[in-house]
Every structure is written in structure tokens, then in C-alpha cells.
């Protein structure tokens, strides 16, 4: 006999004056290979077409479907119901503006983050279409790719106590992004420049190092190492600032 699962889903439609925040219960028979992408779509198609949630790639690649699943931030499309108990509670990711029900506005958050940390390759060199590409050691390319695998799902922000306390905290995702530029030889910024953007309490010095972020990252990005790396570099930079005659 397959299980009948109970889903408690957070409901609130901020643009509907009659809507009040609360949990709504749904029941659905479990089928083979069921995951939350399929389950939520069945609920929407068959039981309540107004439920809001976000899926895009449905393959764990795009980061659209982050939500809090039985208390833990994760990607819904990748969550098999077989790994869940009979009762499934679903909440929107905290730390982001609510669009409705399980859907949150990660787009504005990440855009602002990327603007703040100036998340692009900084170089004085002009692109010359006639020229061959600049050589790079393949190990460096693979290392950058490793950090570039972040899908901006927001789970690390939802799991971070600091980010929940202060809205301007940039989070592990931003520190990882900065680490990515630090190891990229194409980015000509020095530690001083990075310090300007993350050498603050909104940046690396706000992190309490409890590593809720790393535990939930669906891409298994080594966030702990990146936080330590950035902290070390920025710590030195902070010390240099204290020394007379140094900038």
C-alpha cells in the first residue's frame, strides 16, 4: 500500500486583501518516484490551481525552487517524497520578499548582491577580437568552475542566522563569489578592492562561522573553505589598514 502524504503548505497572497497568512493542508497518494515538483504540480492541477510556487528547470540546475521542506531549506524539484515522513511541511524561504505562498523574490535580492560586490571581471585590458585567448592553467579553470557552480538558490541565506538577523548581510553566496574572483587571474582587483566590498560586517566580518550555509547548499559548494579563505585575506587587509603608512 502506498502512503497518503499530508502536505501543510504556507498560503498567503499579498495582493489579495482577503488573504490571510496560514498553513493549508492537502492530501495526496504517494506514487513511485514521486518528487515535490510532481507532487506540487498535481496539487495545483487537480486540487487548487491558485497555489504559487516556482519551478523552472526541474532538474536541480536553475535554483528556482528553493523552499523550506520540513524545516530545512532545499530544492523542491530534487526532493523525493520517499525521503520524507508522512507529513510534509512547506514554507517559503525566509530572508526574501514573499511573492505569494511558496514563491519568493530571489531575483531582486541576487541582483542587488551582485551589484554590491561588483560581481564581474575587472580589467583595464580591452577585448581584442583578433587576439588569441589568454592561456590559463586547466586546474585554475576547474577551480573557478567549482565555485561558479552556485545556482543562487538562496538556501544558504535562508539557513544563515546572521542573514536572518540583519537584512544587509551578503551571505555565504557572496563570499563564495568573491573567492571565485580572487582566484581568477583575469580579475585584476587587489585585496584592497575586495576589502572595500566585503571587508565589513555586512560582508565577511558579519559571519559567525556556524556553517548552516554549507550544510544546506544543494551544489555542495565548499562554503566553509571559501569563508575561511576570504576571512584570512580580508583579515590581513584589515591589519594592514591599522598599520601607519598603509592603505
Amino acid at each position: 500500500m502506498s502512503r497518503k502524504l499530508k502536505y501543510s503548505i504556507f498560503r498567503y497572497n499579498p495582493v489579495d486583501p482577503d488573504s490571510k497568512p496560514g498553513m493549508q493542508e492537502f492530501f495526496l497518494q504517494e506514487t513511485e518516484n514521486l518528487n515535490l515538483f510532481v507532487a506540487l504540480n498535481i496539487l495545483r492541477e487537480v486540487q487548487d490551481p491558485s497555489i504559487q510556487f516556482d519551478f523552472c528547470c526541474r532538474a536541480g540546475i536553475c535554483g528556482a525552487c528553493g523552499m523550506v521542506i520540513n524545516g530545512r531549506p532545499g530544492l523542491a524539484c530534487r526532493t523525493k517524497t520517499a525521503d520524507l515522513p508522512d507529513q510534509v511541511s512547506l514554507l517559503p524561504l525566509p530572508g526574501f520578499r514573499l511573492v505569494g505562498d511558496l514563491s519568493v523574490d530571489t531575483g531582486s535580492w541576487f541582483r542587488a548582491m551582485n551589484e554590491k560586490i561588483r560581481s564581474w571581471v575587472h580589467t583595464d585590458k580591452e577585448f581584442d577580437p583578433q587576439e588569441q585567448e589568454v592561456c590559463m592553467d586547466n586546474r585554475v579553470a576547474e577551480k573557478i568552475y567549482e565555485l561558479d557552480r552556485c545556482i543562487e538558490c538562496g538556501c544558504c541565506i535562508a539557513a544563515c542566522a546572521t542573514a536572518q538577523m540583519r537584512v544587509d548581510f551578503l551571505g555565504a553566496v557572496a563570499m563564495n563569489r568573491i573567492a571565485r574572483f580572487m582566484i581568477d587571474p583575469r580579475d585584476k582587483r587587489g585585496h584592497k578592492d575586495y576589502f572595500e566590498v566585503v571587508g565589513t560586517d555586512q560582508g565577511i566580518f558579519g559571519c559567525m562561522g556556524l556553517l548552516g550555509c554549507q550544510d544546506v547548499c544543494p551544489k555542495n559548494i565548499p562554503l566553509q573553505d571559501q569563508l575561511a579563505y576570504v576571512r584570512r585575506k580580508m583579515g590581513w587587509q584589515a591589519l594592514r589598514r591599522l598599520m601607519p603608512g598603509q592603505a
Binding site: 577585448f127 585567448e133 592561456c135 579553470a141 576547474e142 573557478i144 568552475y145
Partner: peptide
């Protein structure tokens, strides 16, 4: 593709 490289894509080498 070289422009994408210039903009920061970590192409395998």
C-alpha cells in the same frame, strides 16, 4: 567564445 572568455567563463583548457 574568446569574448566570453574575456568576460570570465572558465573554459576547460
Amino acid at each position: 567564445i574568446r569574448q566570453m572568455d574575456y568576460w570570465g567563463v572558465p573554459w576547460n583548457r
